[in-house]
Design a protein around this nucleic acid. Sequence first.
DNA 1: GAGTGTGAACTATTTCACAGCT
DNA 2: AGCTGTGAAATAGTTCACACTC
Lengths: 210, 210
Amino acid sequence: MNRKIAYSGIARLSLYYRLLASLEKTGEEIVSSENLGRKTGCTAAQVRRDLASFGSFGRPGSGYDVKGLKETISKILGKDRGWKVALVGVGNLGSALLSYDGFRPQGFHIVGAFDNDKELFGKRCGDIKIQDIRNLDRSVAYSQNIKIGIITVPAPSAQEVANKLVSCGLKAILNFAPAKLSVPKEVELQNVDLSQELDKLSYLLRSKGE
Amino acid sequence: MNRKIAYSGIARLSLYYRLLASLEKTGEEIVSSENLGRKTGCTAAQVRRDLASFGSFGRPGSGYDVKGLKETISKILGKDRGWKVALVGVGNLGSALLSYDGFRPQGFHIVGAFDNDKELFGKRCGDIKIQDIRNLDRSVAYSQNIKIGIITVPAPSAQEVANKLVSCGLKAILNFAPAKLSVPKEVELQNVDLSQELDKLSYLLRSKGE
DNA sequence: GAGTGTGAACTATTTCACAGCT
DNA sequence: AGCTGTGAAATAGTTCACACTC
């Protein structure tokens, strides 16, 4: 057992998980690294290496047990924990995320939505009532066991919101604002940067002469 | 001049670009790799290495010219091309992206929005009228010079939409559906996978015992 | 003096290829 | 026979450190 997974392996585990969930639905019981790889866009070697960093889950000669591996990965990723999430910034993107029903089955439950626009207070979005951001404090976060925050405010307010989330004791932030946030190193930060994704496509197109 | 940029360098160029645009607004004229790095979360060495893959843009002793470097990166990334984009799937996320006004200034212009839901045809979202997906064909894409497609449909229809976009001659796809798409290798594909981002946070939290 | 551009060293990640298990 | 788990090799990416330029 090779104890250290490549950082990029984590993202692949997420893909494997989703594929396993779908294989389970269609009744597949066993899957090989070859297949798991092809269906997630990874190589068989990556699949085996990634999984082997956490233990020996496969059976030589046959492959991996779909249901078992799915549960194993769920535990590795911590998806079995049922994370509670707070979202700040109920604009276009924020409300889209609130209404998205794909997070819950993945183990993420948005339990609070906050904004600073009076007009929105009390309105519902999905099944959550939008609250004044000032209602979010350490004790609320603690009592609701909220550990993850999603930032969907405009870039200029993003750092301020991040500070707030940190001061409320949240441990992880998913940031959609196109801004570089500073958070204490013990707080995990992931950025989703839509313009950056388009820039990558643009570069690839341009560099092949489109 | 070191001709080959690391793939991950492209994403950083996008960050540098955005920072330079903001420095330009505040009237800064010169920036060092040190500063550019700190403000984008990269190292000074990365900044210099990334830029040096395309030429010598800095002045030893002072740094990089903000305006000039911004324009250079714009060209490198192909942002100066003014890409036309079609979006398919005007649900929550799709309409959020249509209404988002951050793409245009970045050189990406969504010129068409398509769905298969009759109820939506003719409605406006942002300043675009939603059309029947059947209205999107090769000649429309060609005449409007649409090269990039954004997929914001549910996972089960994503591959079908991708096929359609490819058959319309689009050269790049930004996919938000949690599905692994197959496209010809000459078509560029980037995935934005929100559950995956949450999974990464979940893993990091779990692995540090939160 | 200050800061770039870049070889060279280092670290991370991927791929190869095969011994060993079922 | 088929497929995993894993050393070893190969490749990719990052950091160091400094000669050189302004």
